[in-house]
Design a binder for these strands. Sequence first.
DNA 1: TTATAAATTGAATGAATGTTCAATTAATTT
DNA 2: AAATTAATTGAACATTCATTCAATTTATAA
Lengths: 205, 205
Amino acid sequence: MGRKSLKEARKKEIIKVFYGLAKKNGLENTSIAKIAAKMEINPSLIIHYFQTREDLVYGLVDYILDKYKLIYKVSAAHSKDSRKALLEIIGNIFSKKWNALFDDGLFYGCYAMAFHDAKVRDLYKKLLDSLREMLIGHIEQCREDGVLDIEDVETVADNIFVLIDGAYFYLSLVSDKNEYEHRLAKYRQQALSILHLKELSEVAG
Amino acid sequence: MGRKSLKEARKKEIIKVFYGLAKKNGLENTSIAKIAAKMEINPSLIIHYFQTREDLVYGLVDYILDKYKLIYKVSAAHSKDSRKALLEIIGNIFSKKWNALFDDGLFYGCYAMAFHDAKVRDLYKKLLDSLREMLIGHIEQCREDGVLDIEDVETVADNIFVLIDGAYFYLSLVSDKNEYEHRLAKYRQQALSILHLKELSEVAG
DNA sequence: TTATAAATTGAATGAATGTTCAATTAATTT
DNA sequence: AAATTAATTGAACATTCATTCAATTTATAA
């Protein structure tokens, strides 16, 4: 009996507001009090759900990494065709839509925490490793299906993986829209070149 | 007349202590008071030299980016031989010594600030662009000297540039020494492959 | 030695921080 | 209706924060 718990839903609400404010003003300028003010609730309610600010930040990191994971999602339509699946992933990764859906500033802000917080470090490490494994899996599948001419799958996957991180890193500073798209296209090309593939025109959406 | 100014030297001292503390505890956990305590001086002295905390942070960013620039330095010995100069740069970049000399955590922490601070953004953008230009210059020189078989210099430079950023990004999370060195070697190999060069055994130090 | 200018201290400020605890309000079950 | 459980508030806490200002110490040149 008693009232039914809103715990999980409420925690997510709080983290979303946290995310929004931190995106605008930076992680270091976003306090519990400010989140509470924005939500028009009492600061102690936030502490009620997350016992400490530290836990709240861990929640944000989870939230951010979950979003990041989406970049590697494959649509059901291509899940049977390994070649199309891989091309979709490459196409997705090097598409400008992430610019709107995902905030790089927070991604790097939280990443910086990994250097003095073991828990954050583990979260990032595990995520990145799982994404790389996923990429290896897709490429391996393509090779088995005979649609990809590659010797060392791991090395190829690794080079693409690093290309992604580096591309995202630099692109975050490019504000000119045309330059942004131009570079994005170049990086995609480079990814395909690493895979020994030509430019993709067949796979759209 | 009057006392001679220690301003610049003192500012640098303060920033070095700032750097040291922020490296250990994170940027967000390093206050003016803590820096002052570590130096056994009065907090107001720090404000005397840097008018606001904001300015102090800008000073730190400058300091960090200056260090980062060193990665691209070419020793005098190789400055006449474009091929050796390029190989030295590649060798330098993908060497583990930066792990000790340079703190990636702060680099990313400050980088995150670029997303909501125009000044920091400009500092990073200008530095990265100048480094890329530098790389283009070296590669272009090699091509002119006929020691490099490359069509599109800018694209090649860009791909290496992005490889560097991506490599640094992921390597920051690799704590196992053997894996670290193994990956580093792989990334260097990939850089040379982009340049259409074989593994370098001739250039040491 | 005296004037000068910079270095440095020390005390004080108000605002914001994260966190606590007890009290109250609002659902849901018996 | 009564009991129960969770949501939420509100007041208070000690700490820390960046910053201020006036006072003092210290070095240098005239």
